[in-house]
Amino acid sequence: MIEFSNVTKKYGGLTAVDDISLKIPGSGIYCLLGRNGAGKTTIMKLLAGHIPASGGKISVAGKPVSPGRMPESVSFIESGSTQFNMRVGALIDAASSLQENFDREFAAEMADKFELDTKKKFKQLSFGMKTMLTAIITLANNAELILLDEPTLGFDAIMRDQFNTLLLESYNAHPRVIIVSTHLIDEIAKVTERLIIINKGRLLLEVGMDEVDEKAYTLSGSADAVTPLLEGLNCIGKTPVGGLLAAHIYDGRITPPPGVSIDRMSLQDFFIHIVGGKNHG
């Protein structure tokens, strides 16, 4: 479905995406994780054909992608994007007329569910509601690839939960590739199947959530008891507190000796340790 072959994107002297190769074979909800400036939005723009790559090849559904050849099968609207200052209802109608695969009923249902006032003009909406409108317009397109860039920015906790439910509903109704970039890591963990972690423009890890659940854990106990266990294990971070030590592991499970506990690592902690590297631990 999606193929990135040695893709590089440079902005002047800055390398935003650095030689990334990645294959996404089929439908699923994928989470694109990375720190601010890691290159998440650039990857999405490259996939949507909004910007040209400086090097490498990108293809979606077997077709090469570039600004001159924007794929019909991709739906992407950058977060915080500006819209015409029209009523929300009119904007949804306009999107419905502009996009061939637009599901008008789904958009109306989502707008209603999120209490988006369709009579309000775009500039009258709160930041969260503007983000919501962008997410609705993107998700209502039944394209084969949906790219959501920070879709819950400005949402309160209830809205975020509702959004995740709707994301699943949308996916179950139309299974396709949905890539979500977000900083609210633990919340997206409830709906995502695979993680794509990038750091400083490079692909760090592409892994299934089940594998993270299995391999990411924390060993806690006295430093004397925990330290010998780390030999041969991929320790991605350590948190010493007095004489105690919490070691964060991304490796096969072990059976800890008495006095050492093993706990599941949250996705957020996993992300912090695997990306933060030397700065954490």
């Binding site: 609207i77 994007s81 500006t82 819209q83 317009i137």
Partner: peptide
Amino acid sequence: LHFRKMMNLGAKRGN
């Protein structure tokens, strides 16, 4: 003023 907004509504460049 209109190009980017049109793209943000999902328009294709040719259209």
